[in-house]
Computed example of a mutant assay.
Amino acid sequence: MANKSNKSRKKGRAKDKDSAWQERVVQIRRVSKVVKGGKKLSFRAIVVVGNEKGQVGVGVGKAADVIGAVRKGVADAKKQLVEVSLTKASSIVHIANGVAGGAKVFMRPAAPGTGVIAGGAVRTVLELAGVKNILAKQLGSNSPLNNARAAIDALESLRTFAEVARERDIPLEQLYA
């Protein structure tokens, strides 16, 4: 009996550790590869993983079944996590642009109470990053994968005043002067 309760406690701890991460499937697409015997069908899943506290990642997984593709996508997204610096109003610190392939994403900080004004994969990336107030526009491509990667690129380019001061080896107060 005691052995059984130990197992449940261990499972509980592992579940708590992973429960901070949310995952959302942006797209599942059936793809095929032409081989000697005909066509080999498989699935491609685009997955966004985030903890709503400033960390987010986009991953792609391919497998013979949907569940396997999603699992691989989650693992890929966790390998490519990006740290996002947010303001007290849960917005981004400055205007940012991101590019991936033919997709361009423009992001602009917004006042508290605005909400997430963005579409498609960009909205998913921003919500899982923990951004609550932002204006975003996707330009160019309609590809969910390229738009999600462009959003990650824009979020990656964000820098706070403290980071800029540290890079320039000057005190923070000197930036305002």
Rank of each mutant, 00 (worst) to 15 (best):
K10I: 13
A14D: 09
V125D: 12
A20D: 07
I117S: 05
K11M: 10
A154Y: 03
V31F: 05
V25T: 14
E167R: 01
A110G: 11
E156N: 15
P144Q: 01
V125M: 08
R29A: 15
S143N: 15
V131Y: 07
V125I: 11
G98Y: 02
L126Y: 04
K15D: 11
A20C: 04
K15C: 00
T87M: 07
P171F: 01
V116I: 15
E127D: 13
K78M: 06
S85C: 01
F43P: 06
A75S: 11
I152R: 03
S32K: 12
K7V: 10
E167A: 01
K88E: 13
N133L: 09
G12M: 09
G61A: 09
N133W: 05
D65N: 14
T124P: 00
T114C: 05
Q27T: 12
K36V: 11
P109Q: 09
L128E: 10
V99T: 11
K88R: 13
K79P: 01
D16E: 15
V31N: 14
Q138N: 14
R159M: 02
V47Y: 10
V47L: 09
I92S: 08
A162M: 03
P109H: 13
S32W: 03
V164C: 00
Q22A: 13
E156W: 01
L145F: 07
I170V: 14
A96K: 04
R159F: 00
A177R: 15
L128D: 08
K4A: 10
A96S: 14
G113M: 10
G57V: 04
I134M: 10
N3W: 10
M1S: 15
N97H: 12
V58R: 13
G37W: 09
V49A: 15
K15L: 12
V31Q: 13
S32H: 08
G12A: 14
V25A: 02
A2I: 07
N6A: 09
V31P: 06
I170R: 02
Q55A: 06
N3K: 15
V56Q: 14
Y176T: 03
L158Y: 04
A100Q: 06
R71H: 10
A2M: 09
G12C: 01
V56E: 10
R168P: 00
H94K: 06
R24A: 15
Q174S: 13
L145P: 09
A45I: 11
D169W: 00
S85I: 00
M107T: 12
D76R: 03
K39A: 15
V74I: 15
M107I: 13
Y176F: 13
V105L: 07
G50I: 09
L155W: 00
G37S: 14
D169Y: 00
N146M: 08
G59E: 07
A151D: 04
I46S: 06
D65M: 05
K62P: 05
P171G: 05
K10V: 13
S141N: 07
G113P: 06
